[in-house]
Design a protein around this nucleic acid. Structure first.
Lengths: 638, 638
DNA sequence: CTGTCGGCTGGTGGCCGACAA
DNA sequence: TTGTCGGCCACCAGCCGACAG
């Protein structure tokens, strides 16, 4: 599961939570199976160093009717938001990467744009309740100037003042929906502590205590639920009437999470956090192009060229990649020297424990797309993780990692220089230049252009290992990126080659354990099986195993959806007719604890379902309820 | 009902069906209640003069998977399509009028653009099955040149060759859905003749003859229905299993029409014709802006200025207004002299009888929007109808009417000149010029520009009656438009004034009968009433009358939706929560025969429902089935 | 001929308590 | 403590035949 977070695209994305950003605290998290950080809200985060709600206050609270607390609760505990008024670096490259379907037109954009955050507005997608923020940025030359002059103290101060611990927001809880919760068969099982903490107290003296709850969602829509304290041994809290309407309207499935929040005014609020985005593509595009004044990318290009305000649609749950980085974080990260072989630590943003960090080793440095984005720092570091579950070919950006002082890796070459100090750092920093055999350009913009010209050679020069020595510096400037002053041994004539080579080298140890979610590894179940598999009760009819293999199972395991789960079919498409020819809908990973290694055998067998093989059934797979007719496709790690 | 077609916007729109355009024939129409021409398909049209399918053949048959026959069947019998290769006049003014939500920006567009039809592509909206066509036009100076030279013979020939009568397409029928058809309570009652004509024959020897029908819709999607010949006295044809799924998926409501069509290959096809457009606004915009390469209006402006191809989204059922007029029709119409007081005939495109024409009298001539579209012929004639049910303040375009030779109207001044002859018509016609006290401009383009300069005075000059004598002509040219050579007595200082004055004059006789559908006259029913009102059976529970007034009714009248019906709420909105405060959803007009005068009393009482008044119930109103939760709002004429 | 309705039934949504992890 | 399930009931979709306009 963790590995799925760190697939090629996501690996570089995890942020150092709470560094400059805001963290939601005080959330009672009731998820016992921490399968996936995306839907895991951790009160454990309270121990994070610089959690703060001061940014929350700076966020435009006049935002159209979206409750601030609720927004953050829905966004997740580790979601970071740029601070209004703050200095940031905008990375068009990362932005474009996210607009996946955007044609790879070479916009004439700089790779880094220093901006001031003009405004941050909180929104929620009307259809999906997905939260997002509209960030208004304006290019600010002064920030770039500061950067050049090494004057980032002011911004530092700004950052430091945010270190106060967020006062707990009580009366809130988040629960990942179980199969029973989302089934039509019953209501919502309210965790006891949650009911006592968030809901108005019931009159327990009554035989059948019950009350009507009214909760407002992100859009202000009210939802009514009957809250009962059910008789039976033992007694328990349930939401009955009204619950299924909510589930249906919001199209919730098991694995999604709901959260209740009692505001200071006593008003109950209700949010959801989906395990999987609802048709992220079209909705997102629609929103970003049509609604909420978010500028299309062309307008961004214009705005940057004219130094005027542009709006970015910031989707905290769409991807982990941060293409708006706090200036301080950005500049701090570049104070370090990075070199191949260097070891580092990294917080995974989706982690539920504050202390949990992943470590790894830098295996290479170089532009991810030298042709289009020469000199870009966006995911310019190739890394190898110590944890073999992680994708071994991922890339990270410098500001995502913390160089580790410990030395490991047989062939790493550690450049002297302690972290988080300014010792040896440039005062007239021009470190974005890419020195090459004595050539160095101090101007930031110039270096980019220069880089562009050289790019072809740059690639090869970089990849042909050992050809470069650590470049000499003027005035103590140390080159940071694009420098292959390393003794790490990789072979190959080009950068791409080296990656492939790397793969081969590591194949033996990593391949069996590597989880590489991709749509090539989907498990499909034919619709008829689905139809038969769920009959409203849970096991009074053959479930889909029987329909496939003739063997009936009554197991109905709670299953968790990994975040890579994505809809394949758009709303309105008829699943049956679209896919009727061969196979359809669903497969599930095992109900693995997040920290347990996936059982390869099972997973491989699961994949063997494709298409509708009957003889290689995995009895541990089970059909989730109310998926019949839902447009969800689930990805299986292999 | 008729009046609703001829409200201000629609009145000018009805076309002289089949003149140059294509007409669907051979349709068995089973609608007995011809409430609304929009959903009325008339086999009666066979008698129309120049119905032809030759245009159909010229339509791009490589159009993406939309069956040609089915398309036309769905579009309706009187739907006209420009002919590929034909010469047309494009009227941006009419186009912009249709894009209602488009800001009234003054585009620098000529009022008439002579074009050649490059291509016609048939499409169907995936979500709503609404048919539309994409018409590609290219400005063609040669046509304008022909026009200037009076050489329209070639185009005439072209037209004449289309006069052949369309061979019947057998095995097709169209039925407006009844409340029973769309109810969940039962299936679809197949008219006997339709079943025998279109469906494969059943084995009537069997006790319970039945078969499975498979029909493809416009998108090629297959729908399965169980077709039975039901026992009972008398026996009858029904579609049972599968029907309700179709109704639900297509979101059909009573009043919509379905049509079945057995193709030459024996394949069954299935189309729908909605009484009301499904969220026409957003869908239409989406389509026209994003899909199918239809140019946004800016691109049209560009294309016209550069004489390049542009695409128009032609929505045959969206409005009756034709903003693409066949050149021949256009030029022929302007051969006539129009003057105030002149009588005319007009075919109403939505009429179901070929002979049914409406007559009226021209009450004024003048640009509808002299500031923006000086000299435009678009709905430049103000008319008064003989039929008092029609909107008395509507406007028509010259090509929509036929001047009548009969004289009526006490104060009309008939300009000599027989209709449909070329006697006395210009050979070097430059009749778009607006002569003014001897000033005349022969060039078309010039006249427009000239017009623009004069426009201010023009208005007043026009309205101050009797100030102009019929302008003298060169070489027999007679001025046609913008000429107030009339003795019709209307007063007022300006054109607008004259209209208002007119209204007052006619108020006594027309106002009580005028149906002016507008959203100000909506009937709303509170949702709880709706919920209670329909309980699956038709009268085993109190219907909404009871819920409102305590008086139960079992009447369940078939009701027809007028075409002005429009959704107020978009899909995804929660009706209950959106409108929960006071009132919600539905009202219905009486089941009036189309030709019967609406009973004002009833309608007025119906309006008195607002908001949720209990004491003024109209017992003739009844709740339609399966409207609960539907996002439809119905407009009541007052 | 066909729109509407009552009867009837099976499927299922949904509430309950019980059990067991 | 809470996820799941059997029991149970009521509602309603949907098929049937009957009747009447």
């Amino acid at each position: 599961m963790i590995a799925s977070h760190l697939s090629a695209a996501a690996a570089a994305a995890a942020t150092f939570a709470g560094f400059f950003f805001w963290t939601m605290c005080g959330l009672i998290d009731l998820n016992t199976v921490d399968d996936d950080g995306e839907e895991t809200a951790g009160s454990v985060l309270d121990s994070l160093s610089s959690s703060s709600n001061s940014v929350a206050a700076s966020v435009n609270s006049a935002s159209p009717s979206v409750c601030l607390e609720l927004w953050h609760a829905c966004a997740g505990p580790l979601i970071s938001l740029p601070k209004k008024g703050g200095a940031v670096v905008y990375l068009p490259q990362g932005h474009l990467e996210r607009l996946s379907d955007f044609p790879a037109i070479a916009f004439d954009l700089p790779s880094h744009v220093f901006c001031r955050v003009v405004d941050v507005k909180l929104h929620a997608e009307p259809a999906s309740d997905e939260v997002y923020a509209q960030v208004s940025l304006i290019p600010d030359n002064k920030i770039e100037k500061k950067w050049k002059e090494g004057d980032i103290e002011a911004e530092f101060d700004e950052e430091e003042t945010e270190g106060s611990v967020n006062s707990r927001t009580p009366h809130m809880f988040c629960k990942t929906l179980t199969a029973s919760d989302t089934s039509t068969h019953g209501g919502f099982s309210v965790p006891r502590r949650a009911a006592e903490d968030c809901f108005p107290p019931l009159d327990y003296k009554q035989q059948r205590p019950s009350q009507e709850l009214i909760a407002k969602d992100l859009h202000g829509t009210e939802w009514k639920f009957r809250h009962i304290y059910r008789a039976g041994q033992p007694r328990r809290h349930l939401l009955t009437t009204g619950w299924s309407a909510f589930v249906n309207k919001k199209k919730l499935v098991s694995g999604d999470a709901v959260l209740f929040l009692r505001g200071v005014d006593g008003e109950l609020r209700l949010g959801i956090r989906r395990a999987t985005q609802i048709k992220a593509g079209s909705t997102f595009l629609t929103r970003c192009n049509l609604q909420s004044n978010v500028s299309p990318i062309n307008d961004v290009v214009d705005a940057i060229s004219t130094n005027s305000v542009f709006n970015i649609c910031y989707n905290p749950r769409g991807s982990l990649s941060e293409f708006i980085v706090p200036f301080v974080k950005f500049s701090k990260s570049l104070m370090h020297s990075f070199s191949a072989g260097m070891r580092f630590k990294m917080h995974i943003g989706t982690d539920d424990t504050a202390d949990k960090r992943y470590t790894g080793q830098i295996t290479g440095l170089g532009d991810i797309d030298p042709a289009r984005w020469p000199g870009s720092k966006w995911r310019c570091l190739s890394v190898r993780w110590d944890d073999f579950e992680l994708d071994q070919n991922s890339r990270v950006s410098p500001w995502e990692i913390e160089p580790s002082s410990s030395i490991s890796g047989p062939s790493s070459f550690i450049v002297p220089g302690s972290k988080r100090t300014r010792i040896g750092l440039p005062t007239s920093a021009s470190d974005f230049s890419v020195p090459r055999d004595g050539i160095e350009v101090s101007d930031f913009g110039e270096s980019l252009r220069f880089h562009k010209v050289l790019q072809g050679q740059e690639i090869f020069g970089f990849a042909t290992h050992q050809n470069h020595r650590q470049s000499d510096t003027r005035s103590g400037v140390r080159t940071l990126i694009g420098n292959s002053a390393t003794s790490y041994h990789h072979q190959g004539a080009g950068f791409g080659e080296s990656l492939r080579f790397h793969k081969v080298l590591q194949g033996q140890e990593t391949l069996p354990n590597t989880l590489q979610p991709s749509f090539n590894n989907c498990v499909w179940i034919p619709t008829p099986a689905l139809k038969q598999g769920y009959n409203g009760n849970f096991h009074s009819a053959p479930n889909f195993h029987e329909s496939l293999s003739g063997k009936a199972h009554n197991t109905y395991t709670h299953l968790n959806l990994p975040i890579q789960t994505q809809p394949l079919l758009m709303e309105g498409q008829d699943l049956v007719s679209t896919c009727k020819s061969s196979c359809l809908l669903f497969g599930f990973p095992l109900n693995e604890k997040r920290d347990a290694k996936p059982k390869e055998d099972n997973l491989i067998q699961a994949a063997a379902f494709v298409p509708c093989s009957e003889d290689r059934l995995n009895p541990n797979l089970s059909l989730m309820n109310n998926v019949v007719g839902r447009d969800v496709l689930l990805d299986i790690a292999l």
